[in-house]
Simulated assay, not measured.
Amino acid sequence: MALVGVVIDEMFEDVEYTEPTKAFRGAGHSLLHIGLRSGQLVKGKRKRTLVKIDENISEVDINKLDAILIPGGCSPDHLRGYKSAVKFIKDFFNTGKPVFAICHAPQLLITAQVIEGRRVTGWKSIVQDIKNAGAEYINQEVVEDGNLISSRGPPDIPAFTKASLKRLEEI
Rank of each mutant, 00 (worst) to 15 (best):
V99A: 08
G28K: 10
C103T: 04
G26W: 08
S164K: 07
A163S: 15
F160V: 09
G134K: 07
G134E: 03
P155Y: 05
K83W: 03
V114K: 00
N132Y: 04
P20G: 11
I171G: 06
G122D: 06
A23H: 05
R48H: 07
L148M: 07
I62A: 01
A135K: 04
I62D: 02
M11Y: 14
K45N: 11
L36F: 10
K43V: 00
A112P: 13
V143K: 09
V6P: 03
V7K: 02
A85E: 01
S30G: 13
W123R: 13
P106C: 11
I157V: 14
A112Y: 07
F88P: 03
G28L: 09
K166Q: 13
L165S: 08
N56Q: 09
T121M: 07
T95Y: 05
K52E: 15
F160S: 05
Q40A: 14
T121Q: 06
F100G: 01
H78E: 12
E170W: 01
I149C: 06
R80F: 11
F93P: 00
V4I: 15
G5Q: 08
K90G: 08
G5N: 01
L108A: 12
Q40V: 03
N139C: 05
D66V: 06
K97T: 04
S38K: 15
E136R: 13
G26Y: 12
F100K: 00
P154D: 03
D61H: 02
R152Y: 06
K47A: 15
D9I: 00
K87W: 01
I102Q: 05
R118F: 12
K43A: 09
K162D: 14
L65R: 12
S75Q: 08
I149G: 00
F92K: 04
T111A: 15
I138R: 14
V127C: 02
M1N: 12
K83R: 14
I102F: 11
V7C: 06
R37G: 01
K162T: 15
F24W: 12
P106D: 07
Y137H: 13
N132A: 15
M1G: 07
K97P: 01
T121L: 03
L148V: 11
P98N: 03
K43L: 13
L108Y: 04
R25A: 12
F92D: 05
A2N: 11
D61I: 02
F160R: 08
V86Q: 03
V127P: 07
V143P: 05
L168W: 01
G44Q: 09
W123F: 15
L50W: 11
Q107F: 08
G73T: 11
V6G: 02
L50N: 12
L148W: 10
E169H: 10
P106Y: 10
G73H: 09
F92P: 02
H104W: 09
G96W: 00
A112T: 06
I102H: 09
V127D: 02
P158F: 05
S150N: 07
V51A: 07
P154E: 02
V42R: 10
Q40E: 15
